[in-house]
Amino acid sequence: MSSVLNFLSSITLSTALHLLGIILLALLVNRFLKILTKLIIKPATSQARAAQAREQQTRTLAGVLYSAISKVVWVVALITALDLFGINPIPALTLAGLASVAVGFGAQNLVRDLITGFYIVLEDQYAVGDTIQFGEATGRVEHLTLRRTVIRDARGALVTIANGDIRTVANLSRDWSQTFVDVALAPEIALDQPLAALEAASAELRADPAWSQAIVDGPRILGVQALA
């Protein structure tokens, strides 16, 4: 306790002001970085699906860049602050380098996650807002970083996936996708009336302005598929 008090008492007004300046400068740089990365975002100029997807992609890229560079800014600020208190940062950096080598084998999964996440963003495999399928997990991407992907599945659960575990992923939102809906009927019901009702519902859906831009083709009635 006394050593802490001695350390605090040794801090001069000039040192405190310099430390405050370092913190304020780091905050200002991060603020400027936030504004700069927002310039990457291309707001959708229409309700077209391609324009909406492009906005989501650029938002994801801006978020990843800000997160990565912001961490670098704070590391530089910390090193500068150590030097301000007379602590040579070189031995600390050397020790950190040796420690990183020592734990490198244990951090292989982390490095793999970061590299895979970088290529996911760079190659635009998917972005926040897309619906993806990975293994048995299917859901809407709610958060994407270099290390992990977070999706919300049909149950409403948040599923966290390490990017390094993603080998094959299906993007169900890109360009177009389709689904099949089976309608079960009792055997004694005549088919003419249900088929006519389904055709009418399909035509109504195609004519609905809220859905017409999102529908590429169909819906189509394929007819009887199986008898039970």
Rank of each mutant, 00 (worst) to 15 (best):
K42D: 11
A68M: 12
V76P: 00
T37S: 08
A53F: 01
K42H: 12
A68D: 15
L24K: 04
K34Q: 13
L78K: 00
V103D: 05
K71A: 15
A81M: 06
S67T: 13
V75R: 02
L98R: 01
F32I: 12
L28G: 06
V73F: 04
L20T: 13
N88Y: 06
P43F: 04
I90P: 00
Q47I: 06
A16Y: 07
P91A: 03
A48N: 12
T94S: 09
W74L: 08
V72N: 08
L20E: 12
I41G: 06
V103L: 11
H18P: 00
A96Y: 05
R49S: 13
S10M: 07
V75D: 07
A99Y: 03
I11D: 07
G63R: 10
A26T: 01
K34E: 14
L95M: 09
P89F: 01
L27D: 10
P91V: 00
A102I: 11
V101R: 10
R31F: 11
R31Y: 11
L25R: 02
V73T: 08
I23E: 00
H18I: 13
V103G: 02
A44H: 03
Q57R: 11
Q57V: 10
S100I: 03
T58Y: 02
L98G: 09
I35T: 11
A48T: 14
F32L: 15
R54D: 11
N88W: 04
L65A: 15
A99V: 05
Y66H: 14
V76G: 01
L98K: 03
I79W: 00
T12I: 04
I40P: 02
P89E: 05
K71D: 13
I79G: 01
S10T: 08
P43N: 10
F105I: 15
A51V: 03
A102V: 10
A44P: 00
V64N: 05
L20C: 12
I11T: 09
A107Q: 13
L17I: 13
L33W: 02
V76D: 05
P89W: 02
A53P: 00
L78F: 13
F105T: 15
I69E: 02
Q57Y: 10
K38N: 15
R59S: 05
L61E: 14
I22Q: 07
V103A: 12
G63E: 08
T37H: 02
I41Q: 08
L17E: 14
G97P: 00
L27Q: 06
N30S: 11
L27A: 14
V101D: 07
I41W: 05
V73I: 13
A51W: 02
I22A: 05
L61H: 09
V72F: 10
E55A: 06
A53Y: 00
F105E: 15
T60E: 08
L61T: 14
K42L: 09
E55S: 03
L20P: 00
A107I: 04
A107H: 08
A62F: 09
R54G: 02
A96G: 14
T58N: 08
I22M: 09
A53K: 01
L27W: 05
E55V: 06
Y66S: 12
V76S: 02
Y66E: 15
I11L: 13
Y66V: 05
F32C: 11
L19H: 06
I23V: 11
S10D: 15
I69F: 07
T37D: 10
A99R: 00
V75P: 01
S67N: 15
L33C: 07
V103K: 05
Q52D: 06
Y66F: 13
I22H: 04
